[in-house]
Simulated scan of single mutants.
Amino acid sequence: MPMNPHYALTEPIRDAVDTLSKEHPLLVEFGASWCPICEAAQPLLEQAFDGRHAMVQHIKVEDGKGQALGRSFKVKLWPTLVFMRDGQEVERLVRPTDAADIRAALERIDNT
């Protein structure tokens, strides 16, 4: 599955995210469309995916005060990338600045 450029219209519930990551490797990206740091990370994500990691599902979650999913993951800064596999968080990158770091984390969850 390619990188997802759009934030989800509705926030998924935590159980659904955990279950989804049991079916496919999953990257949950927390941020906001108006956040300049989040926007700066988008080209890095594009480079990291770059036609690879077809089995990794990418969900972008618009986070903010009172958003249950972000609080369940204890998100404090944006963007926060949570890499999941088999219902568990495997790795987390906060405010990534290097596509190689994202690519390496994707490779660790996408061992197809």
Rank of each mutant, 00 (worst) to 15 (best):
L69W: 03
P36G: 09
A40P: 01
Q42I: 14
L20V: 13
G87D: 15
T112G: 11
V75R: 06
K74T: 13
K76F: 08
F49D: 05
R85Q: 15
L9A: 14
E29S: 04
G66N: 12
Q88A: 15
R52H: 04
L26Y: 06
R52A: 14
A54D: 14
E23N: 13
K65D: 14
R103G: 10
G51H: 04
C35R: 06
P25H: 07
A8T: 09
F73H: 09
T19G: 09
A16W: 04
F73K: 02
Q42F: 01
D101W: 02
Q67S: 05
R92V: 14
P79V: 11
E46I: 09
R71E: 15
E11V: 14
V82G: 03
N111C: 08
V90D: 07
E89R: 06
W34A: 03
F83C: 10
D110F: 01
Q47D: 13
L45W: 02
A105W: 03
E39Y: 01
T97D: 09
R14I: 15
D86G: 12
I37Y: 00
E91C: 04
L106S: 02
A99N: 06
P36K: 07
L93W: 06
R52L: 11
W78P: 00
T19W: 05
A54E: 14
D15E: 15
G64Y: 11
L77I: 10
L9Y: 00
P2V: 15
S33T: 09
E107K: 02
I109L: 09
T80G: 02
V61P: 05
D110M: 03
R52W: 01
A68L: 13
A100D: 13
V56N: 02
L26M: 12
P2I: 14
F49C: 02
I59K: 01
S72E: 15
Q47A: 12
E46Q: 12
A40N: 10
A104P: 01
F73V: 10
V17W: 03
G51P: 10
R95N: 04
Q88M: 13
Q57R: 13
K60R: 12
T10P: 00
K60S: 10
D110L: 11
L27K: 03
H24F: 13
A32W: 05
M3W: 08
K76N: 07
F30I: 10
T97M: 13
M1N: 03
N111M: 04
P43M: 06
T19C: 06
P43L: 11
A32E: 07
Y7S: 01
H58E: 12
D18W: 07
K74N: 10
V82D: 09
G66P: 06
D98Y: 02
F83R: 00
G51Q: 13
D98F: 09
